[in-house]
């Protein structure tokens, strides 16, 4: 029984990831509509979008090579693997030892690497533009992200996510200056990495502001569906990662089935709050000029480094 139990949780978690990610995006869009005085399409609209795309034929650009066709599957696969590793519900995940948090960032990086290549594959100006900007943002966001994570892993003496969750929940709620800086940095980075306002606008196809959308402009049919779905999961996972690393209270500990429903409830509440926070940021701020982004990410990097330094100096 004890052998099967973690496997069940693993499967449950992946299922929740696949199902809840579109709902989470739907929730964000709905809130955004409300806050801007528009009528929303309902929380389930992302499902309808994905389902529609899956039934459509694929239109491939003449010049597309295997990289362009392979990328959606790879991005989807990598995102699912990340979802199997981040402890969203319980720390008792058999796959969580596969990758620590540095590998996790590496996995996101490989998805991005291929997306950027796919953007350049078809040979349009927009694709290249998107790839170039995405890689610029990523090359600044990634070190900041690692620094924020490093701060947490110094506190918990581990880079394994399950262990981080375990240590932080068992220590009780202590306000550490290092973690406070790291949270701040993480929020800024998560916004940049998931391509939300003020860094990128996911709802636009306006040539000058596109970043992520520019790379996937030529996708259609099932390829686009996979890319969109993976994108939704990425937002979900960044929220999940932030929750697991910084607010892990409520995630089920080892060998404890009873906690599971509570863990699901906690997760739902935390995600609702995270979505609300995101909507407040997106509604309150305007999109930045592209060359303001380095300053934005620079401040994230600064916060993360301050967090790390304050760990070495104060704690």
């Amino acid at each position: 029984m004890n052998q099967i139990y973690p496997v069940i949780i693993e499967i449950l978690q992946i299922a929740i990831l696949l199902i809840a990610a579109p709902v989470f995006i739907g929730w964000i869009r709905m809130l955004k509509c409300w806050s801007q005085g528009r009528t929303s399409a309902g929380i389930l609209q992302p499902y309808r979008d994905i389902a529609k795309l899956f039934t459509k034929d694929v239109v491939l650009a003449e010049n597309a090579s295997w990289i362009f066709r392979f990328t959606p599957y790879l991005v989807f696969g990598v995102t699912v693997l990340v979802g199997a590793i981040v402890p969203i519900l319980s720390v008792d995940l058999p796959l969580s030892a596969t990758a620590d948090v540095i590998v996790l960032i590496g996995l996101f990086a490989i998805a991005r690497f291929f997306t950027a290549l796919a953007g350049m594959d078809i040979g349009t100006a927009f694709g290249g533009m998107g790839s170039s900007r995405e890689m610029m943002i990523a090359s600044l966001a990634e070190p900041a992200m690692l620094m924020a994570i490093f701060t947490v892993s110094l506190v918990s003496r581990s880079t394994s996510l399950s262990q981080i969750v375990h240590v932080i929940t068992s220590k009780g709620f202590i306000l550490r200056p290092s973690i406070a800086f790291a949270v701040l940095a993480f929020i800024l980075i998560a916004i940049a990495e998931t391509g939300r306002i003020p860094v990128d606008n996911p709802a636009t196809h306006l040539e000058l502001t596109m970043i992520h959308e520019a790379m996937i402009l030529e996708y259609s049919g099932r390829h686009l569906a996979l890319m969109e779905w993976a994108g939704m999961m990425k937002v979900f996972l960044f929220a999940g990662l932030g929750i697991a690393v910084f607010f892990p209270w409520g995630i089920a500990p080892k060998d404890n089935l009873i906690y599971l429903p509570a863990a699901i409830l906690f997760l739902a509440i935390k995600l609702c709050l995270a979505g609300t926070g995101l909507v407040l940021i997106e509604t309150g701020l305007a999109k930045m000029r592209i060359f303001r982004i380095p300053e934005f990410l620079g401040s994230a990097f600064l916060f993360a480094t301050l967090g790390m330094l304050s760990y070495f100096i104060l704690e």
Binding site: F76, V80, A99, L226
Partner: peptide, 21 residues
């Protein structure tokens, strides 16, 4: 507990999901 990484599992799981999809 400090850190672990299993490249074969990463490769196999990603390939499996890709193939399944």
């Amino acid at each position: 507990e400090r850190a672990s990484y299993s490249a074969p599992i990463v490769l196999i799981v990603v390939l499996a999901v890709v193939l399944l999809a």
